[in-house]
Amino acid sequence: MRDPRALALALVPAAIVVVTSVFVQTFAGRYELLGAAYAPLLNAGVLLRAFGMFASVILVWGLLRSRGASRPVLALAILSGPVSYGITAALDALSYFPVGQAAYYGINPIAMATVAGQCAAAAVAEMAWRWWSRHRGREVGSPVTWRIAAAFGAGLLTVFFTVLYQGGVPFFYVYQRGYMFLFT
C-alpha cells in the first residue's frame, strides 16, 4: 500500500469489532468484578460492537477520501468490520459445529446485513464528505448522485429484509434452508 495510514484507517472498523468482542466475551457475567459499572459497560460494549459491525465506516470514510485513498482501500474500510465479524463468528462457531458448518456461519444473515449496513453508512459518509468539501470550495461533485442514493437505499433495504423485517425471522429461515440444503 502506498499510504499505510490510510490502510490503518481502513482497519479501524475491524479493530472496533475485535476489541469490543474480546471485551464482551471477557467481562460478560463478571458482575461481581465490575460492580455498578457492569451493566453500563457491557451495554456499551455490545452496542459499540454492533456499531463496529454495521456502520463504523462512517468514522473513517471522510478521512480516507481526504487522503485520496484508493478504491481497494475504501472497499477494505467498508468490509473490514463485517469480515472481522464473519471470521470471529466462524471461529467461535467451531466450538459448536464442524468446519464446513462453521464456515457457513461466517456468512449468516447478520454478516450479510453488516456489509449492507456499511455500504449504506459509506453512502451517508460520502454525501457528508462531498457536502463538506464543496463547502470548503473543493470540486468533488454533487453530494447526491443516483449511485450514492442507490448504495444507501440498497444497503438499508438489505438490512431491513435480513435482520429487521419481522425480527429477521423470514430471512433466518431462508438461511436455515440453505444450511439444510448444504449439510443435511
Binding site: V24, A28, A89, G167
Partner: peptide, 20 residues
C-alpha cells in the same frame, strides 16, 4: 439476574433467539 444487561441480546450466544 445480576449478570443480565439490557442489550445482552446482541451477544453471539443470543443473537438468533429472536430477542434482538
Amino acid at each position: 439476574p445480576p449478570e443480565s444487561f439490557a442489550f445482552l441480546s446482541l451477544m453471539d450466544e443470543n443473537i438468533w433467539e429472536g430477542t434482538l
